[in-house]
């Protein structure tokens, strides 16, 4: 199915992924083509087919409730773009 530019803008907002005008244009066209190809799947009747989420089936993989050694805070914060008072710092929250 063909995507509209406004759909592309909606999705980019959902994905928190900024796009230039040119990128929006290209993506509207490319995504439409890719989805068109993907929709070949609709030729298959899958009504009673159970979806597969894990190709190699496992179950009940559990961990014992025992503490491990946590990371050194200084080491962790050394990778942070901005840190203050032992915390990660983020800009003003502009949305709920």
């Amino acid at each position: 199915m063909a995507l509209t530019r406004s759909q592309v803008e909606h999705v980019s907002r959902l994905a928190r992924l900024g796009l230039s005008e040119v990128e929006k244009e290209h993506l509207t066209e490319q995504l439409s083509r890719i989805l068109e190809h993907v929709e070949s799947m609709n030729r298959l009747n899958t009504t009673d087919v159970t979806p597969t989420y894990h190709a190699v089936a496992l179950q009940n993989v559990l961990r014992e409730d025992k503490p491990h050694q946590s990371l050194d805070r200084a080491k962790v914060l050394s990778q942070a773009p901005e840190a203050e008072a032992g915390c990660f710092k983020v800009p003003k929250i502009t949305e709920g």
């Binding site: 980019s12 907002r13 928190r16 992924l17 900024g18 962790v76 990778q79 942070a80 773009p81 901005e82 990660f88 983020v90 800009p91 003003k92 929250i93 502009t94 949305e95």
Partner: peptide, 17 residues
């Protein structure tokens, strides 16, 4: 927490985008 962060961001949403 790590990696690149844009230099010009007013609010959080803009920073993410």
């Amino acid at each position: 927490r790590y990696g690149h962060r844009t230099l010009d961001s007013g609010g959080l949403l803009e920073m993410y985008m």
